[in-house]
Simulated scan of single mutants.
Amino acid sequence: MRLRFHAFVLTVALSWGGAASVSAAYALDYPTRPIRLIVPYVAGGPLDVLGRLLANGMSGDLNGTVVVENIAGAGGRVGTAAVAKAEPDGYTIGIGVVASLAIGPQLVHTAPYDPIKSFTHIGLVTSGTLTVTVNKSVPAKTLGEFVALAKARPDEISYGSVGVGSLPHMAAELFQRATGTKLRHVPYRGGAASMVDMLAGRIDATFEMPNVTAVYHREGSLRVLATMDKVRSPALPDVPTTAEAGFKGLEMDFWAGVIGPANMPPEIANRLAASIRHVIDQPGFGDSLTAQGLRVHFLPSGEFVQLIRDETARWGEVIAGAGIKLSE
């Protein structure tokens, strides 16, 4: 009966004419096997948690199975390239983020994909921000005092990041560009090592997510001077935004969405987008993201593409101004 029904639908589709109608017929029986959701970072981080929340919710909504696969490396570019190279049949999708779509391709001479042309942009899902944080021995209680201190001591105030081209590094470059300061970059192999040295007073500052710095701020081990967002963070309600602290143009959006390979059938892309929207609207999903320093922020495909274009232009200016290039 199932085979005869599919034959009937395909016959009707062909009678209407055109590949789009045939595509719609196949979409009626989607998914028929597990969907792979590539997270381009290691397990355990905020984006991995996001991927697993989506996979769990979408599995139920689509009456199928969505399986997370972590493919880390090169600041997210390895996993993102795997999405671009997959068959555009709806069975491989991935998490696309600001680092891998708007920043990463501009850091290398030959990018493995085009952030617009290589993908089907299913929808933006979440956004967050970073904080400007100093260790407790730094003689600055406000962002204004920290900027004044950095101007008085060029190349002396140090900050840690997880490497050249990472989000903390880019946030620091944006900070220096907007404030006319010059900080000393200390790259680490991981965020844990950077935070250990922050707490020990071996580096002066960091640009980290609110969920990472909030607990240390509350106990007095570190001092969060501002959040790089348009609104205050729920994790740090007592901390002003950079604009509230008197510094406009210092917003740092940490955003992520779902992408697939270019040329996915529109019916499948639309079905995935509808499923994602259903999942993120469920009670508790937003709370789970808040615990990771993120918030629900849905944008449909067209607006997601425009965000990538805008962010690519914005970060391109920062990268060119700082002269940042990675060896390939």
Rank of each mutant, 00 (worst) to 15 (best):
V49A: 06
G160L: 02
G190M: 01
V164R: 00
G123C: 11
V68D: 00
L250T: 08
V186C: 03
A193M: 12
D287P: 09
V42Y: 06
R218H: 03
G64Q: 01
T242A: 07
V66P: 03
F298L: 10
P34S: 10
G76P: 04
V108R: 11
L53K: 00
Y113D: 09
E311I: 05
G180C: 08
G201P: 07
A322N: 08
S21F: 11
G316H: 03
A322I: 00
I38R: 11
L54G: 04
S59N: 12
V231I: 04
V186G: 02
F207G: 11
A13T: 09
G201C: 01
M228K: 11
P240T: 06
I71S: 02
I157M: 09
D114Y: 14
T290N: 14
V215Y: 00
P46C: 10
P168I: 02
G260W: 02
V296G: 14
S233F: 03
F285M: 15
L124E: 06
I280R: 12
R277W: 06
L14D: 07
S127T: 12
A171H: 09
V22R: 12
V231E: 05
P31Y: 04
L107F: 06
P31R: 14
G104W: 10
A313H: 06
S221A: 05
L236R: 01
G60E: 06
L183Y: 10
T65V: 02
V22W: 12
Q106M: 14
L294F: 12
D61L: 12
F247R: 05
A140G: 05
Y30N: 15
H121R: 05
L149N: 00
Q106L: 15
N135W: 02
P234T: 02
G75Y: 12
H109P: 14
T92D: 07
G302H: 10
L294T: 13
P115F: 15
P265N: 03
G75S: 10
A84V: 08
V83N: 11
D29L: 15
V83P: 11
I35D: 15
R77L: 13
T179A: 03
S194N: 15
P88Q: 13
A320M: 04
A27Q: 13
F207C: 10
I157T: 01
I93C: 14
V224K: 06
W255H: 14
Y188K: 03
G284T: 12
V138N: 14
L107P: 14
I268P: 08
A7G: 09
G96A: 14
G90Q: 04
P168F: 04
G90M: 01
I116W: 04
P240R: 04
I308N: 11
I203R: 13
A148S: 03
V318L: 07
